[in-house]
């Protein structure tokens, strides 16, 4: 059953990478969200899948039901989701500010830090 998610993960990655290779910051941001989901799904799948039984111990029991899902990857993903969201939010605002300040959505035209006409190094001593 993991294999189905492997295929899905591939689609996620393909879309994410394609978006990230765009020159438009806004598309790159969409790519960031998608690649985050893709990575989380890989982590989820790598922890192996079980159907529908959450890793919660029913009241009165001391162990979860047989066949319950693997909680460890879930905890890791939860951490990764929140971290991913924080980074995404920052990059989004960054992209927004870059657009406003540099008047550019196209990364090719953002050349303040590494100007295209950077001076040649002096040959003097």
């Amino acid at each position: 059953m993991e294999i189905a998610l492997v295929g899905l993960v591939a689609v996620f990655f393909a879309v994410a990478v394609y978006l990230l290779l765009s020159k438009s910051i806004i598309r790159m941001l969409l790519g960031i969200v998608v690649i985050g989901n893709a990575v989380n799904l890989v982590l989820f799948t790598a922890g192996r899948l079980t159907a529908e039984v959450p890793p919660i111990i029913p009241a009165g029991e001391y162990v979860p039901l047989a066949g319950s899902a693997n909680p460890l990857p879930q905890a890791l993903i939860l951490t990764a989701i929140v971290i991913g969201f924080a980074l995404f939010a920052f990059l989004l605002v960054l992209g927004y500010r870059a657009y406003q300040e540099l008047d550019a959505d196209n990364t090719d035209t953002m050349r303040l830090a590494e100007p295209e006409d950077a001076p040649r190094p002096p040959l003097s001593y």
Binding site: V53, S68, A69, Q74, I77, L78, I81, V82, F85, D105
Partner: peptide, 30 residues
């Protein structure tokens, strides 16, 4: 696949992402 906590969190995060994306995007002329 048995991860309700993840599902809730993902749902909330995705909602928030969409909201802030929308907030930002409406101000951009792209």
């Amino acid at each position: 696949f048995g991860a309700p906590d993840l599902a809730f969190t993902q749902f909330m995060v995705e909602t928030l992402s969409v909201i802030i994306l929308a907030l930002v995007m409406t101000r951009l002329h792209l």
